[in-house]
Each structure stands twice: as C-alpha cells, then as structure tokens.
Design a protein around this nucleic acid. Structure first.
Lengths: 157, 157
DNA sequence: TATTGTTATACTCTATAACTATA
DNA sequence: TATAGTTATAGAGTATAACAATA
C-alpha cells in the first residue's frame, strides 16, 4: 500500500489492547465495502454484453450531461485524480465513444464530447442501469431508497 | 448546440416506460460507489502508517475471530472468489501475519491462524479503525448509523 | 464428481511523480 | 506560480481458466 501523508498523532490515550471495538459486523465501513462489492458484481453481470465498466459509464454519462466538459471537471464530479480520469477517458476514446478537442476558452483544457457511437452506447447502458437499479431497489420502499441516498450522500459530499 | 440530454429515443423493451431514467444523481449505485470511494480514501489515509489495506484487515480480523478457518471460509464471509482470497492471504503470509497448515479434518483445506506479529498488527489496526469509524459516524446519530447498516445489509446479504 | 487450493494471466482502478503547455 | 493534461510506473483488487490433491 504505497501511501504517505498523515499527521494524525498515534499516541493512544489508553493502554494498548485494553479494549475491544467489538465485532466486525458492527463496523459501518465493513458493510459499505460488502454492499459496494455486491453492487459491483451485479453491475458487471448486467453489463457483460456491453463493453463498459461502472466508471466508464459514469464518465460517459457526465460528458453527455455536460458537453465540452474538461477532464478535470469529470475528475471532480467522480472524486478521482487527473491520472485516473486520464486512463478512463483514454479507454472511452479508444472505443470511439468520445472525442477530445482543445478548449477555445482555456488552452490548457480538453473539451470532451460524445460521438454518435458514444451516445448509442450510453443509451444502451442506461437501459442496463435501469435493470440494475431495479434489482437494487427491489428490496426497498421508495422512502427507504430516498433515505439511503440521503445517508450515503452525507458520506461523499 | 449539438445535443440535449433527453432526446434519445431507443427501442425500449417495455411500452409505458419509454423515458429517460433521469439524472445520474438519482441512481443508488452511483451514491454507493461515491460513498465507498470516500470511505476507501479515508481508510487509506488512516492506515498510511500501517502496512495494511481494507481487505487485508478484514481477512486478518476474520482469521482472528475464527481460528483454523479455511480460505474458502474467508472467501465466503468476504464475498470473494478463491483466487482473490488467495492473493490476499498470500500478502498477509508474506508479512508474517498468519500461517497456513493442513487441516486435520479435511486434507483439501488449509487451516489459517494468526502469528503473534499478526495479532499485534490487528490490535493496531483496530485502533486505527476506531478512528476511521469515528470519522465516518460523526455525521450520523446512533439511530442513523443503525439504520444505515440495516439498509446496507439488505444489499449484501 | 465435487471441493479446495494453487498458479497463471489479464484488466481495471488508484495513486504518485515528473514533465509539458498554458494561464 | 498555479492549473490541466500527459506519461510512466506501481500496487491492489477482481475474475477466469486450468491443474493437482483430496473428499
């Protein structure tokens, strides 16, 4: 795990091993990981016939909703860094689903836009997502769905 | 202005619902991915001083709670396949945190157990998780935490 | 035959660092 | 100086396929 940068002092105010934080089932993060994994797997199955990943669909969708968006704009909305965004946009460009061109207003930026194949791919993806969301939402009432989204948004916003 | 985000008419599999599924912000899966990403990043920061990932900590914890557990047992509890589990157990074994030995009851299985360094690493990890969970829970009441866990569990169970 | 572990392989995501061009 | 894009590099997770040993 190549990371760095953390300034939290690890001087624990209590004796090491003196307490137990309980079972792993009570850890919120554990459930988020499991839920994400379940969603990821079902998404992958639903999208087996299409050649798109979750991230690629999200990026495609964002470009469709925001013509001429820059990569940095996609990155911010998807909470990714520039390099990760680059890799995803590269794959979408290689598939012929979007095009880059220099922004006229800011020479540093690339304006992203969908191609016609990209629009068709997104339309197909949205139909698959509809199925996928139905599988996901089938275990909740509408109120519960709204509640879940609201709670999750508090984590990532 | 080349396009709008709503005018894509496609042959939909059903009759009445031939409409756009709306904005990406209304997709539950999108919020789960974003929330998971935020949790993942904070976890990674909190664990920068330790040499452990989310998955590695979960596996370590499960082995601690279930001595002599087989890899397939870890796989099932973490919803992973055998090959993925193998990779994670390999990394933990390489760190010297757990040992494999043949199961006496079933020769096909490997019995997994923590080493003393593994137990110390898990104790340190649990302290870090306590910090991490506090960051995560800080935006919720206790009731909301319980509600969130209950909703998430319905997805992965 | 089925299960468990194992190895090999490949792709995606994530992140950091360093570089270029532009603001 | 700061921002946006780019390239290179690396580690981790995910998945499939094939194989050996065991049940």
């Amino acid at each position: 795990m190549p990371r760095q940068k953390e300034t939290i002092a690890i001087t624990t105010p209590h004796v090491a091993g003196a307490e137990d934080i309980g079972e792993i089932r009570n850890i919120v993060g554990f459930h988020i990981r499991l839920a994400h994994g379940a969603v990821y797997r079902h998404f992958t199955e639903t999208f087996a016939h299409l050649d798109l990943t979750q991230k690629q669909v999200s990026a495609l969708w964002l470009v469709a909703d925001h013509p001429d968006i820059a990569q940095i704009g996609v990155a911010q909305r998807m909470r990714m860094d520039r390099a990760t965004t680059m890799a995803i946009v590269n794959r979408l460009e290689a598939k012929g689903y979007l095009v880059r061109r220099k922004s006229r207003s800011d020479g540093r930026k690339q304006a992203l836009n969908l191609t016609d194949p990209g629009r068709r791919a997104l339309a197909a993806a949205k139909r698959a997502i509809q199925q996928h969301e139905q599988w996901l939402k089938s275990r909740f009432t509408e109120q519960e769905v709204a509640r879940l989204i609201e709670l999750l948004a508090r984590i990532h916003e």
